[in-house]
Amino acid sequence: MDARDMMTRDVETVQSDEEVSDVLTKLSRRDFTGFPVVDDEGKLVGVVTQRDLVDIFQPSERTLWIPVGFPPFLEPVEYAVDISWNDLDVNLDLLRNASKPIREVMTEDVVTVDPEDSLDTVLELLGDPDLDINRVPVVTDGYVEGIITRQDVLRTLSEERADQ
């Protein structure tokens, strides 16, 4: 079993110059949580996820991290305190960021696989806690051929077990 056998072939992408507001609208109407981002030639240049878009409205500079380390703790425990004002901040963030191109908020360092990569390779990537990814584009020569989500892997494993 390789990536080609597991991938979803009909992949919806967004253009790198699409506005944040348009991508937010598209994402709100879909049952998935991210898009591959392509350039004018259709080559993969990034991925944008709900997490990337949420960061626009809750940027880390408005979160104050307070380390607290009292015995018997061996390591300090960090508490996050949101120092934003209220819903007004969210509305201001939306106004400030709505017309930005999605390339300004997307993740550029995209983890991908080749169509011939094995199930084990895909499992390693999607299960890696340091990567913390939910999907991996299947790419050939820079072009997206498909996408494999954690759901696709679970479906594949379930079908494989049912066939045994």
Rank of each mutant, 00 (worst) to 15 (best):
R155V: 06
Q164K: 15
V122Q: 00
I133K: 00
R4P: 02
W65L: 14
D31W: 14
R29P: 05
P59W: 15
T8K: 04
E104T: 12
T149W: 09
D40F: 04
M1K: 07
V111D: 03
T107G: 02
E19P: 02
V45Q: 05
D132G: 06
N86C: 06
G46E: 03
L44V: 05
V37C: 00
D5R: 13
S84Q: 06
M106D: 03
S118P: 00
G34I: 10
L74V: 10
I148P: 00
D120Q: 12
I66D: 04
T149N: 02
E61G: 02
Y143L: 13
V105L: 09
V111Y: 07
V144E: 01
E12P: 04
T149D: 04
L123D: 03
L24D: 04
I66W: 13
D114L: 15
A98Q: 10
P76M: 05
D120S: 10
N91E: 15
R4F: 12
V77H: 10
V77S: 06
N134L: 11
R155G: 06
L64Y: 13
G34S: 04
D141R: 15
P67R: 06
R29C: 09
N97S: 09
D114T: 12
V37I: 04
T156F: 15
R150W: 09
V138W: 06
E145A: 03
V110S: 05
D22W: 13
T107L: 03
L125R: 01
V81S: 08
N134K: 08
I102P: 00
W85T: 13
Q50S: 09
E160P: 00
W85V: 11
T149L: 08
S158Q: 11
R150Y: 09
D109F: 08
P76D: 09
K100D: 10
M6D: 00
E61H: 08
D87Q: 13
A3F: 07
D40E: 14
E18C: 03
T8H: 05
T149R: 01
P101A: 02
L88D: 13
I133C: 01
N91Y: 15
V105Q: 01
V68I: 12
V122A: 00
R4A: 12
F73A: 06
T107D: 01
V111C: 07
P129Q: 04
S28E: 13
G42T: 09
E160S: 11
M7C: 02
T49N: 05
V139R: 03
R30T: 13
L94M: 09
L27Y: 06
V47Y: 04
R30D: 08
V37R: 03
Q58Y: 14
L88A: 11
I102Q: 00
G127I: 09
G142K: 07
I147S: 00
L27W: 09
T121W: 03
Q15S: 11
R29T: 14
F32Q: 01
R51G: 05
R62W: 15
R9N: 11
D31N: 14
D114C: 12
N91R: 11
V136M: 03
E116F: 14
D120C: 02
S118G: 04
S60T: 13
V144T: 01
L88N: 15
